[in-house]
C-alpha cells in the first residue's frame, strides 16, 4: 500500500499539500539556480514564499475548474496541475513549451489543466477571467473560475469594473488577491489611501475576507467555503491574502541590500514558512521519499527542456491568426 494513502484523510491532505508546496518551492529554487547560466531567456517572477495561497485555493478545485494567473504565476500554474515539463520548456523558449516558446515565463497557459493564461500587463487578466466565468454560467458547465491578482492590480480601473460586472451577473468567480505589499518596489503606503481593500470590495455586494495569518490551512478553508457557496449558485467572492515576496521582483536573487525594504520584514514570514510547517507534520522517512521524488521530477523537467528543440525561424509566422 502506498504509505501516502495510509492513515486518516487529514494526513492524506497534509501529504498532498506538502507535495505541491515542495514541488513549487523546489522548482523555483532550481529556476533561480539555473538562471545565471542564461539558459532561461525569460524574465522570471518567483513566487517563493507566496506558494501557500495558490496551493490552498487550487486544492479545493476540480480538474474542470479554471484559474487565471499573473506574471508571478509559476505557483498557481503548478498548483492547478499545469504540465511541469511544458513550463520549464517554455522558459527555455523551446517548441515543447506550454506556449510553444511564444509566451515565456509571464504568459503561462495550460488549457487542458484549466490554467487559462497569464498576462504581463497588471490586472489585464481580471476581466478575461470574468469572461470565462460568464461563459461557464451561460454554458451551465458548473465550472468555477479563480482569478489570482496582486495588490497592484486592485489599483487598475478594470478591477473595479470587473467586480461590479461579476456581482451584477452573479458569476461563479473567486477573486484571490495575493497582497505581498509591493508593486515592483513601491510599498502599499505610497499607493493606497487606505488599506481597507475588503471593505471596498464588499460595497459591490461581494463577500470579502482578509486572511492575514499566512496560513495555508486558513486559505484552503476560506476558499472551500466560497467555492462551495458558488457551486450552490452564489455569486462571486473575494479573498485578500497577505503574503511576502522573498525574492526580488524579477530575477533569481534576494534584494534586501537595495534599500527599499529590510530583511526584518522577511524574518517573521520565513519563521512561519508554510513548506516547513507542513514538512514538520510528515514522518521523516515519507518526507524524504517525497523530496527525492520531487527532485527527480523537477530534474526530469529541466532535462526535457534542455533536450527539446527550439522552434525553427520559419515558424515565426504561425499563430498570428487562427
Amino acid at each position: 500500500m502506498n504509505p501516502e494513502n495510509r492513515g486518516d484523510s487529514d494526513t492524506q491532505t497534509i501529504v498532498r499539500l506538502y507535495r505541491r508546496m515542495r514541488l513549487i518551492r523546489h522548482l523555483e529554487e532550481e529556476i533561480a539556480r539555473v538562471y545565471p547560466t542564461d539558459k532561461i531567456k525569460s524574465p522570471i517572477h518567483l513566487s517563493i514564499g507566496q506558494e501557500f495561497i495558490a496551493v490552498g485555493v487550487c486544492d479545493v478545485l476540480t480538474a474542470k475548474d479554471r484559474v487565471s494567473i499573473t506574471y508571478r504565476g509559476h505557483a498557481a500554474y503548478v498548483a492547478k496541475g499545469g504540465d511541469l515539463r511544458a513550463l520549464v520548456a517554455e522558459m527555455y523558449g523551446k517548441r515543447t513549451g506550454c506556449a510553444k516558446g511564444r509566451g515565456g515565463s509571464m504568459h503561462l497557459i495550460d488549457m487542458d489543466a484549466g490554467v487559462i493564461g497569464a498576462s504581463a500587463v497588471v490586472g489585464t487578466n481580471i476581466p478575461v477571467a470574468v469572461g470565462f466565468a460568464l461563459a461557464a454560467k451561460r454554458q451551465r458547465s458548473g465550472q468555477v473560475t479563480v482569478c489570482f491578482l496582486g495588490d497592484g492590480a486592485t489599483e487598475e480601473g478594470c478591477f473595479a469594473e470587473s467586480l461590479n460586472f461579476a456581482a451584477l451577473h452573479k458569476l461563479p468567480i473567486l477573486f484571490v488577491c495575493e497582497n505581498n505589499g509591493y508593486a515592483i518596489h513601491e510599498p502599499l503606503s505610497k499607493r493606497w489611501a487606505t488599506d481597507r481593500l475588503v471593505e471596498r470590495v464588499a460595497t459591490y455586494g461581494i463577500p470579502a475576507d482578509r486572511i492575514s495569518d499566512g496560513s495555508l490551512t486558513t486559505v484552503r478553508a476560506r476558499a472551500a467555503e466560497a467555492i462551495t457557496a458558488m457551486r450552490a449558485g452564489a455569486g462571486p467572492a473575494f479573498l485578500e491574502v497577505l503574503c511576502y515576496r522573498w525574492q526580488e521582483h524579477v530575477g533569481p536573487n534576494r534584494d534586501y541590500d537595495q534599500g527599499y525594504r529590510s530583511a526584518d520584514e522577511l524574518a517573521p514570514w520565513k519563521a512561519d514558512d508554510q513548506v516547513a510547517r507542513l514538512a514538520d507534520r510528515i514522518e521523516p522517512a515519507l518526507r524524504a521519499r517525497i523530496d527525492a521524488e520531487i527532485r527527480v521530477q523537477v530534474a526530469e523537467a529541466f532535462t526535457f527542456a534542455e533536450a527539446s528543440p527550439f522552434p525553427e525561424p520559419e515558424e515565426l509566422y504561425e499563430h498570428v491568426y487562427s
Binding site: P127, V128, V130, G131, L134, A136, C158, N164, F165
Partner: peptide
C-alpha cells in the same frame, strides 16, 4: 446592456470568446 466599463467589458468578451462563445 453593460455598465460603462469598456475596458473590463472588452476583457470579459475576450475571456468568453476564449471559453468558446462568440461575443
Amino acid at each position: 446592456t453593460t455598465p460603462l466599463s469598456e475596458d473590463a467589458m472588452t476583457g470579459m468578451a475576450i475571456g468568453a470568446a476564449m471559453a468558446g462563445m462568440r461575443p
